[in-house]
Design a binder for these strands. Structure first.
Lengths: 216, 216
DNA sequence: CCAAAAGTGTTCTTACTACACCCATGT
DNA sequence: ACATGGGTGTAGTAAGAACACTTTTGG
């Protein structure tokens, strides 16, 4: 049971890791997680193990990645490990314990066990879903300007996104909508930006067919 | 541990089910599956439980769907159930035990437990991946004509696909390629069809971005 | 010659990209 | 005034859908 919690921090996509104090793998950075109680639901176990790191209410999205049956940390027997992907909006600042930190996913420290692969799978899943679902809602604040959203998408995807086109793609798909309000300009001026919000705050597939679409 | 094995049978997408002889849920149709031994890999367990139904060599593709922790058949405690999606080409005819049959996914009998939902998830996954990967290789024979491939895709997707466009889409993406040979025409004549094959017979993502593509 | 099935050519539509240009605000 | 960031207009591009037309076979 492992949680890959991702969020945009300081303009980069980051993952929540804690530093192991004890053997095995003392000093290495690990994903939060732990065992599942005998009658516990998987989702409940994730929340239980994450409780110290991030409040459940700060998790905007949680989905299952995969279950691995490889022999892991414990050489006595095979441990089933189900990995989850969690997403935190970039405007919430969970209070982190001393051993826990956000690490940019493109500059990871030495990770414990095979956690590097779980992180890679989570990032790949997030990037794919940003393109064909409304998953951006889980990384962005409730309300935002297009410029802010552009920075979030650029950080999450790992390459620059054009604000104009981002706006148009997401508007056409009815993923985001403008509010009546505008944000004040910064110190250096600039036109006040319209404030937008996501229409839905639950995962929706917006562009299911890359090809071979059904006839109309 | 459950296997949703799908294949195109008689022009329709079918799922492999066996009829339960004993309680609970006697008489209902269930997915093949069973427990995982203490030191067994998940994939090995799937193969072990499927052995009586289909030969491993007949499975052209096997991938994990999800793990469910809901209280299932056994009210004594929660059972973790990991579901897999397996695909069988339409030209192989596994020798089926007496209690086992292919059922069209759009006309399912009363299924045991919550197996209906697992089947739905598997079909959805298959249909999505047919659009943006080369997954068709796992439903088609090694070699085929475009007409035959069209029938397979139409059955799997649940709506008619145009042979011309199917050919062009898959060729442009370098998913299929023509051979030098042609298939003889049928009794009623017709131009002999070029025989094609899939370039790769392993899962490859061919069209990862529905939108927000990286700059060139 | 005709029917049948395969394959080609062509047009249309649409979603997206790229980028020039215009707008509103602070200093 | 002018720098700064936001927003609009507008081609251009490419993938795919739709469908007419041509090709090659059997009877």
């Amino acid at each position: 049971m492992l949680a890959v919690v991702l969020s945009v921090r300081e303009g980069r996509l980051g993952v929540l890791l804690w530093r192991r104090g004890l053997a095995p793998q003392a000093g290495r950075w690990a994903l939060p997680g732990g065992g599942v109680a005998r009658t516990e639901r998987l989702r409940a176990a994730i929340h239980r193990h994450l409780a110290a790191k991030v409040d459940v209410r700060e998790l905007a999205h949680l989905e299952q990645l995969a279950t691995h049956s490889a022999v892991r940390r414990d050489p006595r027997g095979r441990v089933l490990a189900t990995a989850y992907l969690g997403l935190v909006p970039d405007d919430v600042e969970p209070h982190l314990p001393a051993d826990t930190r956000w690490h940019p996913v493109d500059a990871l420290p030495t990770t414990a066990f095979d956690h590097r692969h779980f992180i890679a799978a989570a990032v790949e899943r997030l990037r794919a879903k940003l393109s064909y679902t409304n998953l951006g809602f889980a990384l962005a604040p409730r309300e935002f300007t297009i410029g802010a959203l552009r920075r979030i998408y650029s950080a999450a995807l790992g390459y620059e996104i054009d604000a104009t086109n981002l706006n148009r793609v997401l508007t056409r798909r009815r993923v985001i909508e403008p509010t009546e309000r505008t944000a004040p300009s910064g110190q250096s001026g600039g036109r006040p930006a319209t404030i937008y919000r996501f229409c839905e705050r639950e995962l929706t597939v917006t562009d299911p067919f890359a090809a071979l679409r059904p006839p109309r």
